[in-house]
Amino acid sequence: MSLLTKIISRKIVAFFAVASFSALLSSTVNAYGQSPEEIAARIAPIGNVCIAGEECEVASAAVATSDGPRSGEDIYGTFCTACHSIGVANAPKFGNAGDWAPRIAQGMETLVSHAINGLNAMPARGTCATCTDEEIESAVTYMVENSQ
């Protein structure tokens, strides 16, 4: 069998596989009574990739739909506690004045900048893609106030 014949055969097999899947999908739609729109909504991706420097629609929507700024305690409890409660990757532990003293000495502006932009093992915004700068600052203030 020539290379061209093999390629054509594979394309024909692929075509029939897609056609068979489409027929199966059509019968599934009818069997469960779901419209194509309902199926598309059900199997839609749960997230999007955001590229630095471009607007991220998912994060913007999440911030826009919130009921206002979250407290520093809420942000800490949701996003920061995983690392700062036990000192993951040398993160300063919440409530440990010795861990925080050299960082506090750098000033709040530096601490907030590190939290927003990331530093060492800490990712930018500490994994809170939906946090505003003000919410990040509030979380840093909460940690500092409780760690002196």
Rank of each mutant, 00 (worst) to 15 (best):
M1P: 08
S2H: 05
L4R: 15
L4Y: 05
T5I: 14
I7E: 07
I7Y: 06
I8T: 13
S9G: 15
R10D: 10
K11F: 12
K11C: 11
K11L: 11
I12H: 07
I12G: 09
V13N: 08
A14T: 14
F15W: 09
F16Q: 06
A17R: 14
A19H: 05
S20E: 09
F21P: 04
F21E: 05
S22H: 05
S22D: 08
L24H: 01
L24G: 09
L24P: 02
L25T: 08
S26G: 15
S27M: 10
T28K: 13
V29M: 14
V29P: 02
N30R: 12
A31H: 07
Y32Q: 13
G33I: 03
S35C: 00
E37H: 03
E38L: 08
I39H: 01
I39L: 14
A40M: 10
A41L: 12
I43H: 07
I43W: 09
I43C: 05
A44T: 08
A44W: 04
A44N: 02
P45V: 12
G47K: 11
G47W: 05
N48K: 14
V49S: 08
C50S: 10
I51A: 09
E54S: 13
E55H: 09
E57G: 04
E57M: 06
V58G: 01
V58Q: 07
A59M: 10
A59N: 11
A59R: 03
S60W: 00
A61T: 15
A61R: 13
A62E: 08
A62L: 11
V63Q: 05
V63R: 11
A64G: 00
D67S: 15
D67T: 15
G72W: 06
E73P: 00
E73D: 15
D74F: 10
I75Q: 02
I75S: 01
Y76Q: 07
Y76V: 07
G77E: 09
F79E: 01
A82I: 10
S85H: 06
I86M: 07
G87L: 10
G87Y: 05
V88M: 07
A89E: 01
A89L: 13
N90P: 03
N90Q: 12
N90S: 11
N90G: 08
A91L: 04
A91I: 00
F94E: 01
F94Y: 09
G95R: 00
G95Y: 03
N96Y: 05
A97E: 14
P102H: 06
I104D: 06
I104T: 13
I104P: 02
A105D: 14
A105C: 07
G107V: 04
E109S: 08
E109K: 12
T110G: 01
T110P: 06
T110Q: 06
L111Y: 05
L111N: 03
V112Q: 00
V112D: 00
S113M: 04
I116T: 04
I116M: 03
N117M: 04
G118E: 02
G118F: 13
L119C: 07
N120D: 10
M122S: 02
C128M: 04
T132M: 00
T132H: 00
E134H: 10
I136F: 03
E137Q: 14
S138H: 02
S138E: 11
A139W: 04
T141L: 08
Y142I: 12
N146V: 14
S147M: 04
S147N: 04
Q148T: 10
